[in-house]
Design a protein around this nucleic acid. Structure first.
Length: 565
DNA sequence: GCCGTTTTCGGCCCGACTGTTTTCAGTCG
């Protein structure tokens, strides 16, 4: 029984308790325990055997007993009781934006609604408006939301899709009949979200491979495999990687006569491919290079294959030398348990050092963000002192910073005197996201003009699939950033990826510096940098554009501070 | 349900927004 299975059961209890009207604090207690066990480095089963479960913070007697039951019997009686009370279709109702657990249960109890279809029908027939808390406006809003929820096909974030694709590819690679496997499609291009898993598989025994694929357990995403003979692998991978526009444009080009040089290569070394992209095992980086070589083109990295000028650039030998994970020297935006992170300052620092970072900036939330236990000026001063005390490594630098809220009027959540004591200031918007473009732009400009601000965090504030980007006059933002030397963040968090690739490319062209940060709230999230790198590569970003691709002395100079004593 | 140099009960991150309200309930982050 692995830890994640146990954690999932506890999460499910929390979800179901929400529906059955349980104490919200009890719900949170289960969520906290689930999170703690899911992140635990030790095996939960070992803790059960040694009666050490209740030593895990967030796990008390009651939850420990349920976890022990799960480990010993494979089930939790309490969970099964809860499942009886809430039909699966009712859980589905909360996919509708604006409809939560309480309303879902009200709809079920009063009108027997247990599916999106039943909800839509009841709304059409005007049966919702008489429910307590409902009215005609809410009814029509829900109707629109249902239509939207049903229209949008299920897509997974790139962060959820890559591990699944890599795992499937690894299983295929282990199959004796399989000669080559590659992940293709939008996953290989590192799109923000993906609808299916494209795989290209080379084999001499397609029947055996098909049988193996049919026997795979169901995945959260449809699998779209293409089984080919080994000699067709490169062409198939190229075609299946897309995008459609890119493939069509390459296909229109005549195949160039091959003129082998002494070394056997017919094109000069490709600057775009000189540093490997950060690819998981099972992901082929250049297996379709021959398709380009045959046309006299430089190899075009998958992230550029969107029909946005990459072929002209390849013809002109002017492809960018794209940034890669290996170029990044550190992370300039992470949280600790001082605000809303789950790991302590020491745990975050040690983990960053262990993964080879040269530096890490601790940027916890500022006082206005109460929900995240934002730090008062006094607590921030203590936190900075703790950071300075801990920063005693010879090969690693811990920087003291803050993610300071940009208030509604564009002023910052700490006075300038406090900001001046910090090594790094990330300024972010977390409230009043719905201002007009004019107001929002003025607000952000005011923060950019503050000389203490080094970085604007997740500039558009979007959450993919959940919150639209804020309205901003981006060219004006870029002009101000370029003039003041303020960097824009590319958040590596797969739920944000903010800036978008298009905005990142605009920033580069405007001479604005970028920074790829994880915004990690746990040790595990420190590993998310590759998704930010993928997004940056889609934006044609090179190492020189990214301040955390610089070594520490260069970074410190940019931050306006002299080298450490 | 968890937790305790606020310690065995009474707290538990809280504010914005929306639509329904006449003082609030639900959702969201």
């Amino acid at each position: 029984m692995d830890n994640l299975t146990v954690a999932e059961a506890l999460y499910e209890i929390a979800d179901l308790l929400e529906f059955t009207g349980g104490d919200p604090f009890k719900v949170r207690a289960y969520r906290r325990a689930a999170e703690a066990l899911g992140l635990l480095p030790e095996q939960v089963a070992d803790l059960v055997r040694e009666s050490r479960l209740t030593r895990v913070p967030g796990v008390g007697k009651a939850i420990a007993a349920k976890v022990a039951e799960m480990v010993e019997t494979g089930r939790i009686g309490y969970l099964e009781e809860l499942r009886q009370a809430v039909p699966p279709g009712v859980l589905d109702l909360t996919r509708v934006p604006g409809l939560g657990a309480r309303t879902a249960m009200l709809l079920y109890r009063r009108l027997g609604i247990d599916s999106l279809e039943a909800l839509e029908l009841a709304a059409r027939e005007g049966r919702l408006r008489d429910l307590p808390g409902f009215g005609p406006r809410k009814e029509s809003a829900l109707l629109a939301a249902v239509a939207q929820a049903r229209r949008r096909p299920d897509r997974l974030s790139i962060g959820a899709a890559v591990p699944i694709a890599v795992a499937v590819a690894a299983r295929l690679r282990a199959h004796p009949a399989v000669q080559q496997v590659a992940v293709a499609g939008s996953i290989r291009r590192r799109a923000e979200t993906v609808a299916d898993i494209d795989l290209v598989i080379a084999t001499r025994d397609p029947a055996a491979v098909s049988a193996f694929l049919d026997g795979l357990p169901p995945l959260p995403l449809p699998l779209d495999p293409l089984v080919v003979a080994p000699e067709d692998f490169a062409a198939a991978l190229f075609e299946r990687t897309g995008s459609a526009a890119h493939v069509a444009e390459v296909a229109r080009m005549a195949t160039a006569p091959v003129t082998l040089t002494e070394s056997g290569a017919d094109v000069p070394a490709d600057p775009g491919a000189s540093v490997p992209a950060d690819r998981g095992p099972g992901e082929s980086d250049e297996a379709d290079a021959e398709v380009y070589r045959a046309r006299g083109l430089l190899f075009i990295p998958p992230e550029l294959r969107e029909g946005r000028g990459e072929i002209a650039a390849a013809l002109a030998r002017r492809l960018p030398r794209l940034i890669a994970r290996a170029d990044l020297k550190g992370d300039l935006h992470v949280h600790t348990s001082a605000s809303d992170g789950t790991a302590t300052l020491a745990e975050m620092a040690e983990a960053a050092r262990a993964m080879g970072h040269q530096y890490l900036a601790i940027c916890d939330h500022s006082q206005s963000l109460r929900i995240a236990r934002g730090l008062s000026p006094e607590r921030l001063r203590e936190h900075v002192a703790a950071i300075r005390r801990l920063d005693q490594w010879s090969d690693f630098r811990l920087l003291a910073g803050a993610e300071v809220d940009i208030l509604r009027d564009g002023t910052l959540d700490y006075p300038d005197g406090i900001l001046a004591e910090l090594d790094v200031v990330v300024a972010s918007i977390h409230s009043h996201m719905g201002l007009s473009e004019a107001e929002q732009t003025e607000r952000l400009l005011r923060a950019i003009e503050n000389p203490h601000v080094d970085i604007i965090g997740h500039p558009f504030g979007r959450v993919i699939g959940r919150r639209e980007p804020m309205a901003l006059d981006f060219p004006r933002i870029l002009e101000a950033c370029a003039r003041t030397g303020t960097a824009l963040e590319i958040s590596a968090s797969p739920s944000r990826l903010d800036l978008s690739a298009e905005h990142a490319r605009m920033a580069k062209e405007a001479g604005v510096k970028l920074v790829i940060n994880t915004d990690a709230h746990s040790v595990r999230e420190l590993e998310l940098l590759p998704y930010g790198v993928g997004q940056a590569r889609r934006g044609w970003i090179e190492p020189g554009d990214v301040v955390n691709a610089w070594d520490l002395p260069e970074l410190l100079e940019w931050l306006g501070r002299s080298s450490p004593a």
